[in-house]
């Protein structure tokens, strides 16, 4: 019976452990977003410069992270980095490094796209007014590029949150792993328990991602309406 399963969820420490897993998921996502975001802004700005070798290298970086599935990247960092750099890294650390590098690559493309979307004559007229390069960036480019980059960045944040579900694979006790453990401990007695655990997981991810998706959609719509006059 289905409701015999849901009771188990609130027995003993079960729900508290669930929330702990939720906390790990959230922590990894936030740290990834901050580090990857900063990396992406720097790389994205660099990609608008007229420097051929730099272009090629950064483009290659982006393409590698686009072609190789994130799961595979995760295991590459998990197995290779400790060997090559003789570093002991916790699972959470491995995940943050991988996800931040991937986020940086995706973010660089969003930032570059937003910067080149600002019409050239905007920069030229700023130059004509005597603004230096930093001032051009600060007062003309950035304010116009930010609204263009924002929806993509928010969507990237939801992708990061969803990607944290991979933490399970390198044995980090994230929300999915906690759920998995609970099911393994109780599932054989109550087959419906698994249904409720994964159902709750669905809801938790939905609660994290859906508001961000709505927000991204709303500001994108506003921006388009504004640019259409």
């Amino acid at each position: 019976m289905a409701h015999s399963g849901i009771d188990l969820l609130f027995q003993g420490q079960n729900f508290a452990r669930f929330l702990q897993g939720f906390g790990v998921t959230l922590r990894v996502a936030v740290i990834t977003l901050v580090i990857g975001g900063v990396l992406g802004v720097v790389l994205g700005a660099l990609r608008t410069l007229n420097n051929r070798p730099l272009q090629v290298i950064l483009r290659l970086y982006l393409e590698i992270f686009r072609i190789v599935p994130t799961v595979v990247l995760l295991f590459v960092v998990y197995y290779i980095v400790p060997q090559v750099f003789h570093l002991e890294m916790s699972g959470e650390m491995v995940a943050i490094v991988t996800f931040a590098l991937w986020t940086g690559a995706e973010m660089s493309d969003i930032v570059r796209g937003a910067l080149i979307a600002v019409p050239k004559h905007q920069v030229e007229s700023a130059q004509a007014l005597g603004l230096n390069r930093l001032q051009q960036f600060r007062y003309v480019l950035l304010p116009q590029a930010l609204p263009v980059a924002l929806p993509g960045t928010i969507n990237l944040a939801t992708r990061i949150i969803k990607t944290t579900s991979l933490l399970l694979m390198i044995s980090v006790m994230d929300i999915v792993n906690v759920g998995q453990t609970l099911v393994e401990a109780n599932g054989h007695k109550h087959p419906a328990f698994a249904f409720w655990v994964y159902g709750i997981m669905f809801i938790m991810y939905y609660i994290l991602c859906a508001p961000l998706s709505w927000w991204a959609k709303r500001i994108e719509k506003q921006r388009l309406e504004r640019s259409n006059g």
Partner: peptide, 10 residues
């Protein structure tokens, strides 16, 4: 708004 991994487990 949910990851494939959770969808598969479900």
């Amino acid at each position: 708004n949910t990851p494939l991994l959770v969808q598969l487990f479900f």
